[in-house]
Design a protein around this nucleic acid. Structure first.
Length: 616
RNA sequence: GCCGAAGUAGCUCAGUGGUAGAGCAUCGCCAUGGUAAGGCGGGGGUCACGAGUUCAAUCCUCGUCUUCGGCUCCA
């Protein structure tokens, strides 16, 4: 497999660069103490602790220059082994306390314990519980490091790299530990690949939804409202509402009914659901000034929907019973974790809950998978499906037999529908298995966008039941599903996916009418055209500014308006227009002329069809 | 929450221990314009907020808030 060979080579190269970077760092700051230096996606990092020194971006040049010197020597990487006791002595003698700590753990437990740090990446033998007697080292030139390898042959064979940033990172990922400085770099086999990667990052920067959100006047944050609490402008609200309608239409087709529930609930609801214990510190608390009741701003909607299910006796004839709600939720996320629209404290889930009998799981989940496929086809994003199952570990609630049955149904549906799927054991929620939807965006990044989750636990905690055919009581299974996930998070992904160039059905402004001059008859014609468009449900504006046509065209382009039409004497006489079509939508390059009726009707149809290309 | 950096006009940014400037945007006037920037002029700032040092603070110091890059977390 050429691919996996490349992968091995690439990670040897990146790992070797981590050593070279540590080596260079040691040359520049002899007192540097080293943590771990693993390979990561696109590159590598090394965690260092340099007493009294705070690295800045300017230091990169020095480190890079030093690395280049080491690369130029083309010293071989030599592997050798040492008994573990000796290795500990080596670490202590060389004033490398972090390495010593790793080695001590290794000696004691046969593993470096820290679950979140993969032993292999640390360059240590994988911990399998057995005692480790010997560890391997790699040496290049004057630098020696505890390491499992493999490495490239010599320091000259490390491809193309660039140091990217320095940031804080806790020793062994634990915030109670010392904070180290993480120097992060990217590396590829060839300069060309490095270039491509850097270009991708450039492109990602241009598409940053926070930047586009401001430029296209979609949403904003206010210091007075608070951090992580986005406000949506008229333009941004169009996106929210169109997406909200779309996701509900898709589920309406499979029998979901809209419900409405309040955004606050008594703490008792969340104590009953179990969320209070598990996520209490992320709940916003609300107090009544009149009664002693304590409330929380809801962080999720399932317990609310459960109450509707539980409000009356249910029969097997009622199942599956399906509720949906585009619901506002609030979570008190830590301030440092907030990020644009992708991590906020107030968000909207296109949430739905189906209450089903055991043998209906497959049918209901299949319908939801089909809905997701229809949705992401419209978004022009490829979907992969991750079946997240339980592993043999503890901590899963619910009847194991039910788990088995449910997982079997899920896998069956994946096969029957030819889904591009993979199974990941250990990724299930504690309350049930799930299907996670992974979407790939226009520049190749993968995002988890939505999930279908089975839940065996809440029906039990809330004592949900239905009467079966023989009059007995049964417990339903709950299926949670959000197709967009969080509307805000989806928007952050989607804005970047399309780079702010929304298809007609979503575009906040679909048609802009530009006047050539400011004569009354020109403005009059433009206004009448605009009124007709409005009657067809189109979002249209007239630009009658006292500016040159060229400047007004430019403005329409900058705002990424799908259709721009210019109105002058020619159009008024012929009642025809020549739409200027936004570049990404064009199939046929030739500008053509249409009667105003044809034009308006075609745009109105496209808008309803949710297409991405123009039909002109 | 933690480490680091930053906050000057609506936006992007320059600048100074003696209360500020550019480009774009906005507004007005002129040009009657034809598919990515026509010309001229005007308005607009508690220099994030609060305290301190100083004759004097946007600038120096401290605190707060917010943002950014990461860490950690994400039902």
């Amino acid at each position: 497999m050429a691919d996996s060979n490349n992968q091995t080579e690439l990670s040897a190269l990146r790992h070797s660069l981590a050593h070279i970077m540590a080596n260079a760092t040691q040359h520049l700051w002899p007192r540097a103490k080293f943590g771990v230096g693993p390979v990561v996606e696109h590159g590598f990092y090394y965690d260092v602790d340099i007493p009294g020194v705070s690295l800045s971006n300017e230091d990169f040049e020095r480190i890079e220059a030093e690395m280049k010197k080491i690369i130029a020597t083309d010293e071989p990487f030599e592997r050798f082994t040492m008994p573990i006791a000796e290795a500990i002595k080596w670490a202590t003698d060389n004033d490398q306390p972090y390495k010593a700590e790793l080695l001590n753990d290794l000696q004691r437990a046969g593993t470096t314990v820290a679950k979140d740090l993969d032993a292999g990446e640390l360059g240590l033998p994988a911990g399998d519980g057995s005692k480790v007697s010997e560890v391997s080292f790699y040496r290049n030139g004057d630098f020696t490091d505890l390491c499992r390898g493999p490495h490239v042959e010599s320091t000259g064979k490390v491809g193309a790299f660039k140091l990217m940033r320095v940031s804080g990172a806790y020793w062994r990922g634990n915030e109670k530990n010392a904070q180290m400085q993480r120097i992060y770099g990217v590396a590829f086999s060839t300069p060309k690949e490095l270039r491509q990667h850097l270009d991708m990052l450039e492109e990602a920067k241009k598409r940053d939804h926070r930047k586009l959100g401001q430029e296209l006047d979609l949403f904003l944050f206010s210091d007075l409202v608070g951090s992580g609490l986005p406000l949506f402008t008229p333009r941004g609200t169009v996106l929210r509402e169109e997406l909200g309608k779309f996701t509900q239409e898709l589920r309406h087709k499979t029998g979901f009914q809209r419900v409405w529930t309040p955004v606050i609930a008594k703490t008792d609801l969340y104590k009953a659901s179990g969320h209070w214990d598990k996520f209490g510190d992320e709940l916003f608390l609300v107090k009544s000034q009149e009664t002693s009741d304590e409330f929380v701003l809801r962080p999720m909607n399932c317990p609310h929907h459960v109450q509707i299910y539980a409000s009356q006796p249910r029969s097997y004839r009622d199942l599956p019973l399906k509720f949906m709600e585009n619901a506002g939720d609030y979570r008190d996320e830590k301030t440092g974790e907030l990020h644009g629209l992708s991590r906020v404290r107030s968000f909207t889930q296109d949430d739905s809950h189906a209450f089903v009998a055991e043998n209906q799981i497959k049918e209901v989940a299949t319908a939801l998978v089909h809905a997701s496929q229809e949705m992401y086809e419209v978004f022009d994003m490829e979907l992969k499906f991750r079946l997240s199952f339980r592993d043999s570990g503890p901590g899963y609630l619910g009847d194991p037999k039910l788990w088995d049955k449910a997982q079997a149904q899920i896998e069956e549906l994946a096969k029957e529908n030819n889904l591009d799927y993979y199974i990941e054991e250990g990724e299930a929620a504690f309350y049930g298995p799930k299907i996670d939807f992974m979407a790939t965006d226009a520049i190749g990044r993968q995002w988890q966008v939505a999930t279908v989750q089975l839940d065996f636990v809440q029906p039990e905690r809330f004592g949900l039941e239905y009467t079966d055919e023989s009059g007995g009581k049964q417990q339903p299974v709950m299926i949670h599903c959000a197709l967009l996930g969080s509307l805000e998070r989806f928007l952050s992904v989607y804005i970047e996916h399309v780079g702010g160039r929304f298809p007609v059905w979503l575009a906040p402004e679909q048609v802009r009418i530009i006047t050539v001059n400011q004569e009354e008859k020109t403005l009059d014609f433009a206004r009448k055209l605009s009124e007709r468009a409005d009657k067809l449900g189109l979002r249209v504006s007239v630009d009658n500014d006292n500016e040159s046509v060229g400047k007004k065209i430019r403005s329409s382009e900058v705002w990424k308006v799908p259709y721009t039409i210019v109105i002058g004497d020619k159009e008024i006489e012929s009642n025809e227009v020549t739409p200027r079509i936004r570049g990404d939508m064009v199939v046929n390059q030739d500008a053509k002329t249409y009667t105003t009726d044809e034009f308006l009707q075609t745009v109105a149809n496209e808008s309803k069809m949710r297409v991405t290309k123009t039909s002109f």
